[in-house]
Design a protein around this nucleic acid. Structure first.
Lengths: 113, 113
DNA sequence: TCGTTGTATTCCTTGACTGGCATATAATGG
DNA sequence: CCATTATATGCCAGTCAAGGAATACAACGA
């Protein structure tokens, strides 16, 4: 819930992997266990962290628990990022201006993948 | 440099605080020490982590070292976020549609908080 | 060159996080 | 009610990161 919990939750690579999995579609724990190659208990613990950070929500389907992404905290991250985005937009602008001033290159900036 | 380093760097609240400080303007280590209330060595270590994650760059000014944000990794974060942003845009859309279907409220959605 | 200022690094201790294993708990079907 | 399936939790050991103190290193001024 707190900002800290969100960052800590996403700091772990396995948890980011889980979040990425859930971006495709909601999944039951079993699927997640298989996909991330951890033991079931470890996976459950990671899911708990994600749950407590508000990043995922659970729906019960018979014995299975189906986890799905909650967009809220992601939006919070986006909000955190906003002021910085302004910063790097400026630097892109600066780059653009510099390119304009050098008539040697006829190619457009080409997205640096 | 790696994605992992970026997340780990930002996982720490003190380091996020430093990054926020540097968003306003570049600062020498001394200023940062004062601002974040840690000892000078601890602060230096945090700066090292940020440096190795590519989040900050150093410029030498006499004895002082002035740290400044590097927009690159922030952009990387933004890129990571992009697919998820699509997700919560959809959910906002869904919310909008639901509000459209309930003619009771005449008020606009009103930003939550 | 020497003292001073500003910053980085090393050493050490402590606390937190991770993963596996075993086990508890919840839900279902017979 | 019992066995089974699906998930969560407790316990333990290994690892790692953080902070403080002391110290080393670098750049400047006299």
């Amino acid at each position: 819930m707190s900002d800290a919990a969100l960052w800590t939750a996403l700091a772990d690579p396995h948890r980011r992997a889980i979040v990425a999995l859930l971006l495709e579609r909601p999944r039951a724990v079993g699927e997640i266990v298989e996909a991330c190659g951890l033991s079931q208990p470890s996976t459950s613990k990671h899911l708990k962290v994600l749950r407590e950070a508000g990043l995922v929500r659970v729906r019960q389907d018979a014995q299975r628990r189906v986890y799905a992404l909650d967009p809220g905290p992601i939006a919070a991250l986006d909000a955190w990022l906003a002021p910085y985005r302004k910063l790097w937009n400026e630097s892109l602008d600066a780059l653009g201006r510099r390119l304009d001033e050098t008539p040697d290159t006829t190619e457009p900036p080409a997205p640096k993948d």
